[in-house]
Design a protein around this nucleic acid. Structure first.
Lengths: 131, 131
DNA sequence: GTTTTAGTTGAATAATTATTCAACTGTCAA
DNA sequence: TTGACAGTTGAATAATTATTCAACTAAAAC
């Protein structure tokens, strides 16, 4: 079942890597500091919220004001269903929160980190485009 | 070609949204502040770098030390090809930079914003899991 | 100069994910 | 008490994207 002719020097059993360690001390030191699986999952989930254009535009819109599903749909020119699916996604990850008033559900940003992450990235791309 | 019975009040021609504006003044005000297409694209591209577990683990590894493709492959137990494809992706987005020494190519993080975004997210998920 | 190794590449496949569609719930107004 | 509307939902489809595979380049070792 080995995928290649190398006997992997990393100590793993599955041996998917098709090479050997080149700098052993750096590799050993780094392995101890690597992210654990559950933290990794939480981090990628958080970034995924911002990595889709529909979701990022929703987050962008909510920077200014809470807003209902209809108004977001109009602003993004998409169906309520598509927006509602993405809002559910964002709510599950604690990126947005919802408040219901009669028939209408108002969404707003849930956490200050959302604003922070958004601001750092905006600075990044603005600096990039100034070079 | 209309997708629904509503005449969209947002002024767009394609009328994909299946509803009308509920809070006109907030919608009008928000529309003026919305992200332009090119900034949106740059931002989602940047976040996408962090939103894939392989790429985030590469970024995590490079927090500590520059590293060659072989050593990253060993640490992540993946083929050099898979790692190389993702490194190319990250290099094109100016997330990592490369330095060649003989046969070996060393990769490291390219921009302080990469460290910043990473740190804010890590704080976020650590706080979440403490609640 | 031939072989080995580090890394890259493009195309194909596999896996993931966004959007659509149709049916549904709950609230309000007539 | 019925109809209209705001919003939600699950399953199917469409679109995107990660990984694999095989072939390749360039540097080093023999």
């Amino acid at each position: 079942m080995a995928k290649n002719k190398y006997s992997c020097s990393c100590g793993c059993s599955s041996q998917l890597c098709d090479c050997e360690i080149i700098h052993k001390s750096v590799v050993d030191k780094t392995r101890k500091k690597m992210l654990d699986v559950s933290t990794l999952k939480m981090m990628t989930d958080f970034y995924k919220s911002f990595a889709d254009s529909t979701r990022l535009r929703i987050i962008d819109i909510l920077q200014n004001h809470e807003m209902c599903v209809c108004d977001i749909s109009v602003l993004l020119n998409m169906t309520k269903s598509a927006i509602s699916h993405q809002l559910k996604y964002l709510r599950q990850l604690n990126i947005v929160k919802a408040r219901k008033d009669g028939k209408i559900v108002y969404y707003s940003l849930a956490d200050k980190h959302v604003n922070e992450i958004y601001a750092v990235c905006l600075n990044h791309v603005l600096e990039e485009s100034n070079e």
